[in-house]
């Protein structure tokens, strides 16, 4: 008895050592991605406390002032401080992009896996529906949803989250289904069916753990596109309303001044692409770790 207890303790310790060893061998994309994302999140949370100006303060400098000591990234046409606006915008950006994409990936992933497993008419109808939704151009589709919700609701952040989620949902759904179609032919799914598992249980226990890698990468890519979509809607007057410091909106607002004052677009654009890249690196690295196979002979 004592000897077996001793062995177990030893094993736990050995396994602990192994997992510590794994941390050291994490993919560099995951390490860099999480560092960058942490910075973004820190800025989003603490930014409003230390940003030099409020995001809507007009005339902090001359309009279109180039970067200088007072306005670190320059100012826009109303003389608002771009640095402060970018810092203030981080929170909006992360909230809108992450919530909407997470919603889409969770729902779309579930529907797609279920559809791929159940097959037959259910799959047929759901996929045709998804295809119809995908075939409508993204902006037109978003406009239709906002119109249906009523103009007075436009600008509501939760509506935006819903719109973006609805746009991404059929796309992630199809992706998840294609993964499921491959997975359901595996023998372990057959064994689960022969055991009498419910469809829900098979999706949850057998399919989902094997699809997480793909879904995470999907999340990274979609979360990167979300700010662009939100920005476009803002530009059409249907997204967040000025003077909200949303990066996409800032790019749209200042795009006319691109030649004369490129930094007005550059600041939010760099912030946005940095977010997209770090999100992608993070999810890519995470997918690698989750999908890592222990190498053996």
């Amino acid at each position: 008895m004592t000897s077996s207890a001793a062995t177990r303790k030893f094993v736990t310790r050995a396994e602990l050592g192994k997992s510590l060893g794994r941390v050291r061998r994490l993919p560099w994309t995951l390490v860099l991605g999480s560092v960058l994302l942490t910075i973004y999140i820190l800025v989003a949370i603490t930014g409003p406390l230390w940003a030099p100006f409020p995001y809507d303060r007009i005339g902090t400098g001359k309009p279109f002032a180039p970067p200088n000591a007072k306005n670190l990234l320059g100012t826009d046409q109303m003389g608002r401080d771009l640095f402060s606006r970018v810092v203030h915008g981080a929170g909006h950006e992360l909230f809108l992009a992450l919530t909407s994409t997470a919603l889409a990936v969770v729902l779309g992933g579930f529907l797609g896996l279920l559809s791929g497993f159940v097959g037959g008419w259910f799959d047929e109808i759901l996929m045709r529906l998804f295809e119809v939704l995908i075939s409508i151009p993204v902006l037109v589709f978003a406009l239709l949803v906002i119109m249906a919700a009523g103009l007075e609701a436009s600008g509501n952040e939760w509506l935006l989250v819903g719109v973006v989620a609805l746009v991404w949902l059929p796309r992630t759904g199809r992706m998840a289904r294609s993964v499921a179609i491959d997975l359901v032919t595996r023998d372990y799914v057959l064994v689960a069916r022969a055991r009498g598992e419910s469809a829900w249980s098979i999706v949850w226990r057998e399919l989902l753990p094997n699809a997480t890698g793909v879904l995470l990468v999907e999340f990274g890519v979609r979360a990167g596109y979300a700010p662009i979509l939100i920005g476009s809607l803002g530009f059409l007057g249907l997204g967040v309303r000025p003077p909200t410091p949303e990066w996409g909106l800032m790019i749209s607002e200042n795009r006319a001044n691109l030649v004369a004052a490129p930094y007005t677009v550059l600041a939010p654009a760099l912030a946005l692409s940095g977010l997209v890249i770090s999100l992608n690196m993070f999810t890519d690295g995470l997918a690698r770790v989750l999908g890592r196979q222990v190498k053996r002979f």
């Binding site: 595996r186 023998d187 057959l190 226990r205 753990p209 196979q293």
Partner: peptide
Amino acid sequence: PVDKRTRNLLRELQLVFQNPDASLNPRQ
């Protein structure tokens, strides 16, 4: 068909496949 069988019948009839790589879920 399998989805109309009683639990006891499912239990009494079990399967083992050729390739354990495919018949064991790699993430369980």
